[in-house]
Design a binder for these strands. Structure first.
Lengths: 210, 210
DNA sequence: TGTACATCAGTGAACGCGCGTTCACTGATGTAC
DNA sequence: TGTACATCAGTGAACGCGCGTTCACTGATGTAC
């Protein structure tokens, strides 16, 4: 119930920052009813604007959703980079932070997460979106590179594969157990503990001790 | 474009098996436009029946979707059980089949998969649905139990945790790389190979050789 | 075997509603001179 | 500093459409006797 986020007083004919507010509206509405659970008109209403206004900024609902996903990937990449912290003070610790950041993102930014991974937006269809998504993955890839470099030279696994493994185990736990909506499965431990144990076993299997 | 699946000739006043046909309709429509991408009326139209007819079988669209998810979990549990094959001829081989069955299901039954994991149906809300979902997981749990029993008695990990690890890594790969729709991420190898490598590393980390 | 009746599973017409989208418009803002 | 004009970002009314849902109905099937 906000047609002026923050209540900056009655607005005039122009909204000022409708594009941003439509994104906020989408995030709020996704949180309430899932991606796909709101309409273009809903977003306009949420922003306190006529149903024709959003057309000045987005071609249609999908474009709005795509923008949300794009921003989500940007935010996500930043969070991962920050968590990785250049691999300091040691690789194991940095990996723990990286995993935690992934789970935190799924939990605390469910709307972005849904737009990014569960809204049906086609990453392949939008080059800009794809680039933002790749940037997130690049963060995992960098971490894997550092990890692999620490291993004895003989029998090093490809860093790309390791990155994909880390991604999929983290994504699996996030999607099943760290989501914020009704589809979350019950779990007899914290998602963080489950992930950390899995990561340790995996790293042990690789032959590195974290 | 089928109002009589299989073309069994013109039907009379009664449809015969509308409930089944509505499920078929839902599967078809989910495949085309995603869960959430079709309406109750669409399903009726697909089944060649008046828009009021579905109400004889389902309270609303959500109940139909829930039924699809329920059937999906039943089918899924069967596929996993079959793949596991009582752990024969050896645990490693059976695990490989189990993983492959999971990925195959995601790929070949995208509609069921979407209804089960990405439609927003609340498993907690429907006891029957929950029981079917639990049955699928039980299959993974049984497999983990066998695996753990093969390990030396000292320092055995909890079978439940191992089952959850297997589930999340498989689910992560399935959701990211083995899906059949536009949200699939590109992968420079087969999802099966990626999973098998990960499984081997994980098992090595546990201290069992498959 | 026939008949009466109950039940089931459909029909089709109707309704109110909200959505997506277009349109000519208009108020506010920026810019040239 | 003032004025004329172009551009931008909104309005609000309108439209056709399809959805969800209800309703009295009716054809088909099953069952009691």
């Amino acid at each position: 119930m906000s047609w002026k986020s923050g209540g900056r007083g009655p607005r005039g004919y122009h909204h000022g920052d409708l594009r941003e507010d439509l994104v906020r509206a989408a995030l709020e509405l996704i949180k309430e009813k899932g991606p796909g659970g709101f309409t273009f008109a809903d977003a306009a209403r949420w922003a306190g604007v006529s149903p024709a206004a959003p057309y000045r900024h987005y071609r249609d609902r999908d474009e709005l959703l795509g923008d949300v996903a794009k921003r989500g990937f940007g935010l996500f990449a930043g969070r991962l980079r920050e968590a990785w912290g250049d691999g300091k003070p040691n690789t194991g610790e940095a990996f723990r932070r990286l995993g935690k950041a992934y789970l935190d993102f799924a939990r605390n930014e469910p709307s972005y997460y849904a737009a990014m991974f569960e809204s049906g937006v086609s990453i392949a269809g939008d080059p800009e979106l794809r680039e933002m998504a790749d940037r997130s993955f690049q963060q995992l890839r960098d971490a894997a590179e550092v990890l692999v470099a620490k291993m004895p030279a003989q029998g090093r696994p490809p860093a790309l594969m390791v990155a994909l493994h880390i991604w999929s185990m983290t994504h699996g736990i996030a999607s099943l157990f760290a989501r914020a909506d009704a589809a979350r499965r019950p779990l007899p431990m914290s998602a963080e503990d489950l992930l950390e144990a899995q990561m340790l076993i995996y790293l042990k299997g690789l032959g590195v001790d974290a």
